[in-house]
Simulated scan of single mutants.
Amino acid sequence: MFEHIGWIVEAKIRQGKKAEFEAVMSEIVAKTREEQGTLNYQYYLSEEGDVLVYERFADVASAHIHVSNWDTFAERWVAAAIPTRMVHLGELPEDLRARHSALAPLWLKPFGGFARSV
């Protein structure tokens, strides 16, 4: 039904850590831009410091590559923001889901709808 997989991560920037978060986010975005199979890697931010990251991948192998790259930034990212929620989107295999087990993600499987490419 759906061609790609992905996830959403929500977090809250720690008090006084916005500059540190922006720095590590910029580095991760630059590294992720090099990943051919990463289709979306987008950050959204509220005035109150709530963060939403939308990530979408061409396939499972691309998602594994991204998680491995992200692991090098994880300590700095978590030092600047508290992860509050994660949602897996699509038919993610157990080995990929296990890589996020510390966040206890909600798993949402395809149900209906469509996606357009422009």
Rank of each mutant, 00 (worst) to 15 (best):
K12C: 11
R97T: 05
E22I: 00
A30T: 10
I13H: 02
A81G: 04
Y44A: 04
A19P: 08
G49P: 03
R56I: 00
W77G: 01
A63G: 05
L45K: 07
V60T: 15
A30L: 14
A23T: 12
N69I: 03
F73M: 06
A102V: 13
S62C: 03
A102T: 05
L39I: 07
L103R: 13
F111N: 11
V53F: 07
E3Q: 13
E22A: 05
L52P: 03
S68T: 11
L108T: 06
A58I: 01
T72D: 08
T84A: 06
W70Y: 09
T84I: 07
D50S: 09
R116V: 08
V118M: 10
P93D: 08
Q42V: 06
S26R: 11
I28W: 01
P105G: 11
Q36D: 15
E10Y: 07
R97M: 10
V60D: 08
H4R: 11
E47L: 05
A98G: 07
K17N: 07
N69Q: 10
L39V: 04
A19H: 14
W77E: 01
R97P: 01
E94T: 10
E22K: 04
L39E: 09
V53M: 12
V51K: 05
L103E: 12
F111G: 12
L89R: 06
T32G: 03
R56Y: 00
D95S: 07
M1C: 10
H64K: 14
E22T: 03
I65C: 02
L106P: 00
E94M: 11
T32E: 04
E20G: 05
H100N: 15
R33A: 14
Y54Q: 09
A11N: 10
S62M: 03
G49M: 09
T84W: 08
L39A: 03
V51T: 04
S26C: 01
A79K: 12
Y54F: 12
M25T: 05
H88L: 09
E55Y: 01
E91Q: 15
V9G: 11
L106D: 15
E91H: 15
L89I: 13
N40D: 05
A104H: 14
T84H: 13
A19K: 14
I8H: 10
A19N: 11
A61I: 02
D71L: 14
R116C: 09
R99L: 14
S117L: 12
E34H: 06
E35L: 05
A23Y: 02
F114G: 08
E55W: 00
I5N: 02
Y54W: 09
L108M: 09
L89D: 06
A23W: 01
E91V: 09
W77K: 03
K18N: 04
H64C: 04
Y43M: 13
Y54V: 13
W70F: 12
A61P: 00
H66I: 01
D50Q: 12
R76P: 05
